[in-house]
Structure formats: structure tokens, C-alpha cells
Amino acid sequence: MKLDYLQALKRVDEARGVWILHGQEPLLEQNVLDALRKSWTKHEVERQRYDLNSVSDWKTVFNALNSLSLFSQNLAIEVHGNIKPDANGLKQLKHYIQHNEQNLLLVIMPKQDSNSLKSSFFQLVEANGVVVPLTANYPQDRQRILSNEADQLGIQLNQDAWVWLEQHHEHNLLAAKNSLMRVADTFSDQKLIGIEHLQECLQDQSRYSTFDLSDALISGNLALSIKIFQYLEESGEPNSLILWTISKEMRLLMQLYEQPQNALQLGIWKNKISIYQQSLRRLNPHAFLNWPELLLRVDAAIKGLSKEKPEYLIQQCIAELCGKRLFAF
């Protein structure tokens, strides 16, 4: 079964079996993941996360799916990466689908090309589970998605304001949502938002976005990257979304190092392949060994599970991506 983003949001409580989320829209991915995680907490579902670095990691995933802790009745396995299971993994996946109806295997992947979507893995999941493309290719799709965000904030935009918002952010949904949050806070007593409200609120508040941070990181510009991070922090950008941006770039670089011929399949846009290749030549691959642990430390700090300051760890991540090191591990 194939569901679009809004349909998937409505069915998170029913999520069982196998789901695949794939795309390049961080807002859509984060919203679906947040909704699923809230549902798991509500229904006392045990959650585990795994990152795929090689095809053999699928064995660990399937072993986990067959084992529950003594305190859990249901399990959700969250898998991040762009590596499909091999023939043996597909057999295990079929067995899981046939014999395990209560647990959930959730696979989060970057944007897939047409050949990948025709693979045995995607065909098996689409026939027996759920595939959710996290895309918003047309203006009407983006407006539907952002209208849903506006509804949750208790505001509405007139049609001229929608047109202005999309042009202002050049189809960047995450930046557009942040603008909706800002205008809702600024004009809390105004239910219908027009262009004049957006202009007054945003004209000097949209200098940088997480997309600018990605570009600066991959270019290795440490000073600009730190400047953008500080701007985003001062502008109220959630640390979780900044971490998502950094994590995405780290994982893309690690995957490209392992699969240098598969840049397009990894979700890297064609016009940016050379920039990522230059970034790899600038970096020391031995540093990659520290990155997963560093990302986990940032995540724990953001969630208040450690005494470390997330802003310091994020700056360490930024420095690592730029080929520098601010502090010792």
C-alpha cells in the first residue's frame, strides 16, 4: 500500500508490519516520526533504533524483531539508512511479515530513484505493508501540508499570503513552518494572516535556514557554519532539527565513502556530487568512527538525558564536518 504524507499521519496508531518512509523533506520526516513515537509512548510500545552501515546490519535488525524485553508486549524497530536487504534478508522479511502482525519495522530512507522503487524490497513492502513517499512536488501539495501546520497553530492565511510565503521560502517547507510559528506568536490575536503580517514579521528574520547550514558544512566553511548555527539558535530553531541536518550530512558522507559510485542512489543531488566528493577528500575517514557516538551524545543532551550542553556538542559536530576538532572526545 502507498500512502501520502497526510494519510500516513492519520494512520500512525495502526502502524504494524513494515513501513518505509523515503524522501528529502525533513519537515515531513520529522512530523511522521514524532507522531509515531508519541503513539508508541501512548501504547507502551518498546522502541529500538538501528543505523545501517552495511547489508550485514540487517541481520541485527531481524534478530531484534524476534526478541522482546520482559517488560514489553509490542516492539517498534526504527531503521535509518539507504541499504536494502540482500536475498537472505528478503527471506527473513517475508517470514517476519507472515508471522509477526503486532510489531513494526519502520525503515527511514533518503529519496529513492525510479529503479530503486522497482526493487524487490520496495515491491515486497508495498504489497504487504506501507510505503510513504515524503514528497511535496506541487504547490497545491505544499499548501495542503502547510495548511495543516497552520491549523495546528490556530491561524489561517489568505490566498495572497500563501503565494507570498511559498515564493519567500522557495519551496522550503521546514523554513515555511518556522515562519508560520513565528507569525502565530507575533500576531497571537490575529486568526487570518495576510501578506502584511508576514512581511512585518519575517522581512529580517529569514537570512539563514538549515539548508544554508548544510551547504556551509559540506563546503567546509567553519566560520560561516558556526555563524549560521548561532543565528538559527537565536531565531528559535529547535536543536532537534539542527541535529537532523547535521546527522543527515554526516551519514551521507560516511555512506559515500563506503559507496563512492552510488552518490545518486544515496540521495545526493547531481549538481552537488562534486561538492560532497571534495568534502570527502578534505576529511580524515578515521574521524568517521567517532561520529555515531557524537550524534548520540547530542541527542541525549537535547532530551535532557545527560548533563552535557547540546549547543557545545552541536558546535563539535559542525567542526568535525568541517575537518576540525574543537574538543577532545
Rank of each mutant, 00 (worst) to 15 (best):
3 L>K: 10
4 D>P: 02
4 D>G: 04
8 A>G: 00
14 E>H: 14
20 I>Y: 07
25 E>G: 02
27 L>I: 04
29 E>R: 09
29 E>C: 04
32 V>P: 02
35 A>D: 08
40 W>C: 15
42 K>P: 11
56 S>G: 02
59 K>R: 14
60 T>Y: 12
61 V>T: 02
61 V>R: 02
62 F>C: 10
63 N>D: 03
65 L>F: 12
66 N>W: 07
68 L>Y: 12
73 Q>S: 10
73 Q>T: 00
76 A>G: 14
77 I>L: 03
78 E>Y: 04
80 H>T: 10
83 I>W: 09
84 K>P: 11
88 N>I: 01
92 Q>C: 13
93 L>T: 15
95 H>T: 15
101 E>Q: 09
103 N>G: 09
105 L>D: 03
107 V>A: 02
109 M>Q: 08
109 M>I: 12
110 P>Q: 05
112 Q>C: 13
114 S>N: 03
123 Q>W: 06
126 E>W: 04
126 E>I: 02
127 A>E: 06
130 V>R: 08
133 P>N: 11
136 A>H: 10
137 N>I: 04
139 P>F: 04
144 R>M: 04
150 A>R: 05
155 I>W: 02
156 Q>E: 07
159 Q>Y: 02
159 Q>E: 04
164 W>G: 03
167 Q>K: 13
170 E>D: 10
170 E>R: 12
171 H>D: 15
173 L>P: 09
178 N>C: 05
179 S>C: 12
179 S>Y: 13
183 V>E: 12
185 D>E: 14
187 F>Y: 15
188 S>P: 00
189 D>Q: 06
190 Q>A: 06
190 Q>V: 03
191 K>Y: 13
192 L>P: 14
192 L>A: 03
192 L>Y: 11
194 G>H: 13
198 L>I: 13
201 C>W: 13
204 D>N: 12
210 T>V: 09
211 F>V: 02
212 D>L: 07
215 D>R: 11
216 A>C: 01
218 I>P: 06
219 S>K: 10
219 S>V: 00
221 N>A: 09
222 L>Y: 09
222 L>E: 05
224 L>S: 15
224 L>Y: 01
227 K>A: 15
230 Q>N: 15
232 L>G: 14
233 E>R: 00
234 E>S: 14
234 E>Y: 03
240 S>K: 09
241 L>H: 00
241 L>C: 11
243 L>T: 00
244 W>V: 06
245 T>W: 10
245 T>S: 01
245 T>Y: 08
246 I>Q: 00
252 L>Q: 03
254 M>I: 15
254 M>N: 09
259 Q>P: 03
264 L>T: 07
266 L>C: 04
266 L>W: 12
267 G>M: 10
267 G>V: 06
270 K>E: 01
273 I>D: 09
275 I>K: 08
275 I>D: 02
291 W>S: 07
296 L>D: 07
296 L>W: 08
300 A>Q: 12
302 I>F: 04
305 L>I: 04
307 K>I: 14
307 K>M: 15
313 L>T: 10
313 L>F: 10
317 C>G: 05
323 G>I: 13
329 F>N: 14
